[in-house]
Computed example of a mutant assay.
Amino acid sequence: MPTYNKLVRDRIPEIIDATGKAFTTRVLSEEEYLIELKKKSFEELEEYHDAETREDAIEELADLMEIVHAFAKYHKTSLEEIEAIRHEKAEKRGGFDKRIFLNEVED
Rank of each mutant, 00 (worst) to 15 (best):
L64C: 11
I100D: 00
G94S: 04
K76V: 09
E36G: 01
S78H: 02
V8I: 15
K38G: 05
N5F: 06
G94N: 05
T53L: 05
L28K: 07
T77F: 06
L79N: 09
D10M: 00
T25C: 12
L61I: 14
E14A: 14
A70D: 14
I82Q: 05
S78D: 00
E55L: 13
D50R: 14
N5M: 05
A72W: 05
I82N: 01
K92M: 09
Y4M: 03
F23W: 10
E36V: 01
Y4C: 03
Y74N: 02
L102A: 10
H87F: 11
K40D: 08
E46C: 04
N103R: 13
A70E: 14
L79A: 02
E47S: 11
V68E: 00
V105S: 01
Y48V: 05
F71P: 01
I100R: 02
A70R: 07
D63V: 00
E43D: 13
L37W: 07
V68Q: 02
M1D: 04
A51Q: 10
T24R: 07
L61K: 06
A51W: 10
V8F: 05
L37A: 12
A22W: 08
A57F: 08
E36L: 01
N5Y: 08
L34M: 08
E32S: 03
E31Q: 10
V8Q: 04
D50Y: 08
E80P: 01
G20N: 09
L102D: 02
E60N: 05
E66Q: 14
K98L: 08
I85Y: 13
E104R: 06
Y4G: 02
D10K: 08
R86Y: 08
E52N: 12
E59T: 14
E14M: 11
D17R: 15
A22V: 08
K73S: 12
S41R: 05
D63F: 00
H69Y: 09
A90Y: 10
I12C: 02
I35N: 15
E52C: 11
I16D: 02
H69W: 04
I85Q: 12
T53E: 03
G20W: 09
E60Y: 03
R9P: 06
E106A: 06
E31L: 00
L37N: 10
T3G: 09
A22M: 10
T53C: 04
T53Y: 07
E36C: 04
A62D: 09
A84K: 15
N103F: 08
A72V: 12
A18S: 15
D56W: 05
R99Y: 12
E91F: 03
T77K: 08
S29P: 01
R9W: 05
E55K: 12
F42G: 12
E46M: 09
L64W: 01
F96L: 07
F101G: 04
E30G: 02
F101L: 14
A62R: 10
R99P: 00
E83L: 13
